[in-house]
Each structure stands twice: as C-alpha cells, then as structure tokens.
Amino acid sequence: MLVSIYRYNSEKDNVPYMEDVNVDIPEGKDLMVLDVLHLLKAEDSSVTYRRSCREGVCGSDGLNMNGKNGLACITPLSEVVKKDKLVLRPLPGLPVIRDLVVDMSMFYKQYEKIKPFLVNDTPPPAIERLQSPEEREKLDGLYECILCACCSTACPSFWWNPDKFIGPSGLLQAYRFLADSRDTSTAERLADLDDPFSVFRCRGIMNCVSVCPKGLNPTKAIGHIRGMLMQRST
C-alpha cells in the first residue's frame, strides 16, 4: 500500500512536503491507521504523531485520512484506504508543529472560554446533588466528547474565525453545562455566548457531525443553544 504522509520539521525543512512510502501490510489483518503509523515509525523514527490510549477514548490521534478527519487508532484501513493509497495529513486549519502534530492552543482556548465546569451557587449537600435519570439523560451525547478536535478542524467557520467562533466542540461542551440540572449559571453562560461570532458563525454545514468519531452531534447542540439565546432575547 502507498502511504503519502505530510512531513515538516522546522529545524530542517523550509516548507512542508508529502513523503510517499510503500508499506507492506500483513495479509489477512485489518490494521488500524495507527498501526500503519507505528510501522512507518519503526522504519523512520523521525515520523511524528501523537498517540496514547490506542482505543479511541483519549482523543490524541486526530488526523486527516484520505481527506476526512478521524482518529487513527479506530479507523481500519478497510474503511479509509482508496485504490491502495492512504494520504495522511495533520488536522486542517491549525498551525503544524511537526509532521502530523498540530498546535491545539486555539482549540483549547475556545474550550476554556465557555467555562467548562459546573457552577452551582448553593452550598453542596453532604451527599451528591440529586439528579433524576431523565435529567441525567440530557447529558448523553454531550459528556462523551474527548476533545479530539476532529469536528472543529473540519469546520470552515472555525477555519476563518478560530479566535472568535467557539467551534462545534466548544459549543457542544457549552450545551453540556447548560443542560446539566446541577448547574445554576445558565443566564451567565448565555450572556457570554450572545454575540455575533461565538455561536452564530455556525452555518449549519454539519461537517462536525459527519466526522465526530464518538458519533456526537454538535450541530444539534448548537441548535439548542440558539434556541435558548432567542428565547432569552424575547
């Protein structure tokens, strides 16, 4: 199989380039893209990427594989390789540090902006704060986000305004706290989001939904936030 991989090392390359490498894939095994990266690195130790859990829960190895963002560790070759070729690029739209490693600061900054922590003005009880199964169910599809950035870096609105548009991942998290019955700062949270950019730059392109490796739906969450913002202004 031909792997074409994005290479850039600021200490020796003036510009990034694509390197083509032929990789022997063992017969009868459906490797994951991460396994292929390991094979490449065993040959050339300078090939650089992030990885940790290797089972799709830590969100380290978000990449662009044959044009689509996803996690290398849970993307089988059978699903992604076309015509015996695999093109590997860093997540689009963020500055590249080296090879497939991008600078995630912008992405994390947007996450921080939405105050991603529970706020509750009442003193905590001696036990847990009670929450009904129905209230808790509202968090399903939200709390599972692994901050892999596959969605935000697939979003044209985020590419153009990574400093002002929170992006799908951050907004999904914003809604996670708006939806939590234990959180009491709904009004402040909505006030913080109420400007032309933070939420309203979402154009409903839905790239986020199609790439999210956890099957989450940021567009839907953004819709809920819009609804809450509208209601607030009426």
């Binding site: 922590f117 036990i127 847990e128 199964p133 808790r136």
Partner: peptide
C-alpha cells in the same frame, strides 16, 4: 471514600442515576 465521590459529583461528574436521583 464517600466524601471523595460526592466531591466528584459536586465537581460535575455525570454519574448514572437511580430513580431516587442518587448515583
């Protein structure tokens, strides 16, 4: 232990719930 677990709930950990609203 119980104190440490309740703290996690207060911090926002989305535990699954029983009908009584408990963890």
């Amino acid at each position: 232990g119980p104190q440490a677990v309740f703290e996690l709930d207060h911090m926002g950990l989305p535990f699954s719930r029983t009908e009584e609203g408990r963890i």
